[in-house]
């Protein structure tokens, strides 16, 4: 059992209840024990740092101070929510960089009898902990119901991999972690080019037309790529894409139906849990039609070859012969000459 301190954050209590419920089902199989820090408070989400820095950092640092005080056996603080992760990690980073900020924040903390020495806890995101500490092999071993035939678009949102001063992610513009995890569950992962684009955050409240456009891009691209559903790590992204999909459709006169779930929900399903146990049904855009594919044999699409399809096949092969090769990518099995 790997032991970590855990900061849940407010979303997990409310809008992202499905995240919390599904998270609880996967910890056991992954061998993770999360110890919730006592008396934690809101991280300020995306708003507070935009209003007043010192109180915002003091608010965040209070959680760090509590975690440091509670640290026993581990000094790793895990957050599952993107905004919480970013805020905690960012605050710790800036407190390490700026002695003035650290001093001011500590004088604020002192009023509550707390103190925090920057860097004394390490803030990490749950997804990265699963990939790095647990490993994909352990994930594969826990899978009892592979998600074969389910086409998923992995969507991280903008807050998790950027900024990434410690280089924890494979690439801060196009990280592969979520893709690898979903592939380990047996799902068919589409190469989703918008995986780190912004979902609009609270833009739907401030400037709805812009917010809807940001959401439209995400669901339009996932639909174009033939994804059955989108998978995210972020409570805000999930809520935006899910809850505002209807309004977005009305705004543009479109008819997208793109369900979006948390990665932990798919993990729970792959680990053999029932849909209800992992919070399926809480989403507004119904994911059940898409999930009907899991566990069912993949329908055969190889029909009898007609003269037309044969001609098309030959034509495609001919086109392939004329085409120039693509550059080999890491992990590519293609044969290469010696360098």
């Amino acid at each position: 059992m790997s032991h970590y301190l855990y900061y849940p954050g407010c979303s997990m209590e409310s809008s992202a209840a499905a995240y919390r419920e599904s998270l609880e089902t996967v910890l056991g199989p992954l061998g993770i024990r999360l110890e919730e820090i006592d008396d934690w408070n809101c991280c300020g989400a995306t708003e507070y740092v935009g209003i007043s820095l010192l109180p915002a950092y003091a608010l965040i640092a209070r959680n760090l101070a509590l975690a440091a005080r509670q640290a026993d056996g581990t000094r790793t603080l895990v957050a599952a929510c993107s905004a919480c992760y970013l805020n905690l990690a960012k605050a710790d980073h800036y407190l390490q960089e700026s002695r003035t900020l650290a001093a001011n924040v500590n004088s604020a903390l002192g009023a509550g009898g707390l103190a925090y020495r920057a860097g004394s806890v390490t803030v990490r995101h749950l997804l990265e902990v699963i990939i790095t500490d647990v490993g994909l092999d352990a994930v594969r071993a826990a899978v009892s119901r592979p998600l074969s035939g389910l086409r998923v678009a992995p969507y991280l949102g903008c807050m998790v991999p950027r900024p990434d001063p410690d280089h924890r992610w494979t690439d801060h513009e196009r990280p592969r972690e979520l893709d690898l995890l979903l592939a380990a569950l047996g799902a068919e992962v589409v190469d989703y080019p918008l995986k780190t684009e912004c979902c609009g955050g609270h833009m739907t409240q401030i400037s709805p037309a812009i917010g809807f456009e940001l959401i439209r891009r995400l669901i339009a691209e996932a639909t174009r790529l033939g994804a059955d559903l989108m998978v995210t790590v972020c409570p805000m992204c999930q809520m935006n894409v899910d809850a505002f999909q209807g309004e977005t459709n009305r705004h543009f006169g479109t008819h997208y139906r793109m369900p979006i779930l948390f990665y932990t929900q798919l993990m729970g399903l792959a680990f053999g849990r029932e849909a209800r146990e992992v919070g399926i049904g809480r989403e507004l855009v119904d994911a059940r039609p898409a999930l009907a594919r899991i566990g069912l044999p993949v329908p055969s699409t190889a029909a009898e070859e007609t003269p037309e399809t044969k001609a098309a096949r030959i034509e495609a092969a001919h086109r392939r012969r004329q085409a120039l090769p693509m550059p080999p990518m890491p992990g590519d099995a293609r044969e290469e000459g010696p360098r």
Partner: peptide, 14 residues
């Protein structure tokens, strides 16, 4: 036939 990543910069074969 091997993809020539040296001289052909990966665009041709040798």
């Amino acid at each position: 036939k091997i993809l020539d990543v040296v001289y052909e910069a990966g665009l041709g074969y040798r």
